[in-house]
Computed example of a mutant assay.
Amino acid sequence: MKYKNPKYRKRRNTFPLEISCGNCKTPMVIYAKGGKGNLIKLQVPRIIASEVDLEKHEGSLLCSNCKEELARKGTYDDNVTYWIIRGKVNSKRVNNYSC
């Protein structure tokens, strides 16, 4: 991952997930996921590292390789959030990832 997220805050009971493009399998984001449920949204304070610079990024999250739209930008609990488009991303649990 190219960019570390300066807004990342460590949370208890989370584990790192690698989110990649469903079309070309390019890794896009390392995300701190909590709980057992499906991945619906990416909250910016929980994004550990990303392929695109989130500070300068405007609008929806696009794949850096194939330019496919993966998530749309919005808000949730006063946090900037990317709402995932169903079926557009793959996720994989990452073991031994150090923040």
Rank of each mutant, 00 (worst) to 15 (best):
E68P: 01
S50E: 01
E69N: 14
V44H: 08
K56H: 10
S50K: 02
V44K: 13
S60M: 03
S50F: 00
L42E: 06
C63D: 03
I47D: 04
A71R: 00
L42W: 07
L39T: 05
E58H: 14
K56S: 08
G59W: 10
G74F: 06
A49D: 01
I48R: 00
L62G: 03
D77Y: 05
K67T: 09
C66P: 09
C63A: 02
K56Y: 11
L62V: 07
D77T: 07
G74H: 06
Q43P: 06
E69S: 15
N65Q: 12
Y76I: 06
A49K: 04
D53C: 02
Q43I: 10
K73W: 03
L61A: 07
E58K: 14
E51V: 06
E51F: 11
V44Q: 12
K41E: 09
R72E: 10
N65L: 08
S50D: 00
C63F: 03
C66T: 12
G59Q: 10
K67F: 14
P45G: 06
V52I: 13
G74W: 08
L70V: 03
P45Q: 07
L61V: 07
A71P: 02
L62C: 06
L62A: 09
E69R: 15
Y76Q: 13
L70A: 02
A49P: 00
E69C: 15
K67M: 06
E51H: 05
S64Y: 13
V44P: 03
E55Q: 09
Y76K: 09
V52F: 11
L62I: 12
L62H: 05
S60G: 04
I48K: 00
K56G: 02
A71V: 04
E51A: 11
G59E: 11
V52G: 05
P45K: 04
E58F: 14
N65A: 09
P45T: 01
Q43H: 15
K56A: 05
R46N: 13
P45M: 07
V52S: 12
A49H: 03
P45S: 07
E58Q: 15
L54A: 04
G59N: 11
L70T: 01
T75H: 14
L39A: 11
Q43A: 12
L54I: 08
E58S: 13
G59R: 05
E68A: 06
L39W: 08
E55L: 08
L62K: 09
H57I: 13
S60E: 01
T75G: 14
L42Y: 08
G59A: 05
T75I: 13
V44E: 10
L39M: 10
D53F: 03
S60T: 03
R72M: 09
L39D: 09
K41L: 13
I48A: 00
S50W: 01
Q43W: 11
S50A: 09
G59H: 08
K67P: 07
K73G: 01
P45E: 00
I47F: 07
V52M: 13
Q43E: 15
L61D: 03
E51G: 01
K41V: 11
K41M: 13
R46W: 08
V52Y: 11
L54D: 03
